[in-house]
Design a protein around this nucleic acid. Structure first.
Length: 210
DNA sequence: GACCAGGCACATC
DNA sequence: GATGTGCATGGT
């Protein structure tokens, strides 16, 4: 790598400042948001979460008891609402039955083993699992998303068709395994992606990494 | 009206 | 193992 990952991080941090991720009040809210934001604009997710909060349903046990159809209607704004209601239910079933809906029980044990358990839940893939590990449970796991891949590919750090594990490995093998660093770095990449590294009309000329 | 957004599972080849 | 497709709302 001509430019090191930590140099990129410093440039992004100097330019954008701290991002204060994840935008949520509780770890449970992070986990719900992680599922709702799959391939979806965050502002649409916020509306869905506000609906749940307004109805005082944003807890594992309340959502677990809520019929899937009703849940789907409440999260409509987040898009893919039927599939996401089902994914939330799958996760809640896992969370309640294996961990009694207790966030403290989640944090215990081996992170790698718990990641595998999360991945076994239908509807939770690598990015969602890692978002939960990093942003809800404060584990030093790097989250890779579409922005991350696009930015690294544009800067020729990875091939455009690199897989999730490969991209994640580049970060985790070249940076100190620091939860706060991984938190801020991923959030900064999303910020950069939203503002400069656009899909069709990238503002590469204005990119703060240049 | 087209395009896109902080993915994932599943079908098909 | 790679590649394609359905899922869906709301902002630009």
């Amino acid at each position: 790598m001509a430019v090191t990952l930590i140099e990129i991080y410093k440039k992004l941090y100097d330019y954008f400042g701290p991002q204060h991720w994840w935008p949520a009040q509780t770890p449970f809210e992070v986990m719900v948001g992680a599922i709702l934001t799959q391939n979806t604009n965050w502002s649409n997710v916020e509306k869905a979460i506000q609906n749940l909060k307004r109805k005082k349903l944003l807890s594992a046990k309340k959502l677990y008891r809520l019929p899937e159809k009703k849940l789907a209607a409440l999260i409509r704004s987040a898009g893919y609402y039927n599939i996401k209601a089902n994914r939330l239910k799958n996760f809640l079933d896992f969370f309640i039955k294996k961990y009694k809906g207790d966030i403290r029980k989640l944090s215990k044990g081996n992170t790698r083993v718990f990641r595998e358990a999360l991945l076994s839940v239908k509807g939770i893939g690598a990015e969602t699992a890692d978002s939960i590990l990093l942003y809800a449970l404060n584990k030093p796991i790097f989250v890779v998303d579409a922005y991350t891949k696009r930015i690294l590919a544009r800067h020729k750090i990875v091939s455009p068709d690199a897989g999730y594990a490969e991209v994640q490995g580049i970060f985790m093998q070249n940076l100190k395994k620091d939860q706060k660093l991984f938190n801020e770095y991923h959030a900064l990449l999303v910020k950069l992606g939203k503002e400069f590294c656009l899909k069709n009309k990238p503002k590469c000329g204005l990119c703060p990494l240049k």
